[in-house]
Simulated assay, not measured.
Amino acid sequence: MDVLQQFANFAPKKKGDPAVLLLSGGLDSATLLALMKALGYTPYALSVRYGQRHSSELDAAVNIAKIFGAHRHEIIDLDLRRFGGSALTDSLIDVPTNGQANPHPELEGEIPVTYVPARNTVLLSCALSWMEALGGKDIFFGANAVDYSGYPDCRPAYVKAFEAMANLATRIGVEEHSIRVHAPIIDLHKSEIIQLGVALGVDYAKTVSCYQANAAGQACGVCESCRLRKLGFSEAGMIDPTIYQDNSGA
């Protein structure tokens, strides 16, 4: 498949190798699951109930894992609400719903309130533990440094640093120095991610990206995640299949 040529560096060392994916239920991680299958991995999907505002994305993750044949899907509980510090885990902090989505917010020197303190480090550590228990050497997650919210744990330098740490902190890393942490879409615009997913057969109507979706999985249409998602479909020249609350996607 031609679409896979640009991802040759992310292919498994051996067809069928196990790899762990952080599967949120959103657009990016759903695309990665489809990509992993196409590249020839045996995917193990890990979702985390970390105290986010809704469970709709986890419901979506369950469906996505089934659709793309994750070999195994685990949902673990890790309540980051006890720490707070983010609009996604603290009900006293409002999710921002005004202003235009800024594809390069880091230039403004501000990290948005939707950043969950050290979330990717915590979640990737769980993925690393499962990966080593499986005897695997590969982890995938949907970090993106182009159309993203300015999170420090979505940068290429962070991915490289976590991979280095993984090879220092695990038995398989010390013995073989072979652990790889993959972020294949880190340099892609949201429109390019959508085009990739469509080519791989992803039905984005089944994904949930919204920071504050309702129980039915309907998106608010006004949070930054929704804005970036809508912009991505627009720039890709595709119809946005997202179901929005009160026609907010119009």
Rank of each mutant, 00 (worst) to 15 (best):
K66N: 05
K66Q: 09
K66V: 02
K66P: 03
I67E: 12
I67S: 04
I67M: 01
I67L: 01
F68A: 00
G69M: 00
A70K: 00
A70L: 02
A70E: 00
H71T: 10
H71V: 02
R72W: 10
R72P: 00
H73Q: 07
H73P: 06
H73E: 00
E74P: 02
E74H: 00
I75Q: 04
I75T: 13
I75L: 02
I75N: 03
I75W: 04
I76R: 02
I76K: 06
D77Y: 04
D77N: 13
L78N: 09
L78Y: 14
L78H: 11
L78S: 11
L78D: 08
D79Y: 06
D79I: 05
R81H: 07
R81C: 13
R81E: 12
R82E: 15
R82H: 14
R82G: 14
F83H: 13
F83L: 15
F83R: 14
F83V: 15
G84F: 11
G84S: 12
G84H: 09
G85Y: 13
S86W: 10
S86C: 12
S86F: 09
S86L: 09
A87C: 09
A87H: 05
A87Y: 08
L88V: 11
L88F: 10
L88Q: 13
L88C: 12
T89A: 08
T89H: 08
S91N: 15
S91P: 10
S91Q: 15
I93C: 11
I93K: 14
I93E: 10
D94N: 13
V95C: 11
V95S: 12
V95G: 11
P96Y: 08
P96C: 07
P96A: 08
T97S: 14
T97H: 13
T97Q: 15
T97A: 13
G99P: 01
G99Y: 03
G99M: 05
Q100T: 14
Q100N: 12
A101N: 05
N102A: 00
N102G: 01
P103D: 09
P103M: 06
H104E: 12
H104S: 13
H104L: 04
P105C: 07
P105H: 03
P105K: 00
E106A: 06
L107Y: 07
L107P: 04
L107D: 12
G109F: 05
E110C: 02
E110S: 06
E110W: 02
P112A: 07
V113L: 11
V113N: 14
V113D: 12
V113R: 12
T114Y: 06
T114I: 07
T114R: 03
Y115E: 06
Y115R: 04
Y115P: 01
Y115D: 05
Y115A: 08
V116F: 04
V116K: 03
V116N: 01
V116Y: 01
P117W: 10
P117F: 09
A118G: 07
A118E: 11
A118P: 01
A118H: 14
N120S: 11
N120Q: 11
N120V: 08
N120D: 14
N120R: 07
T121F: 12
T121W: 07
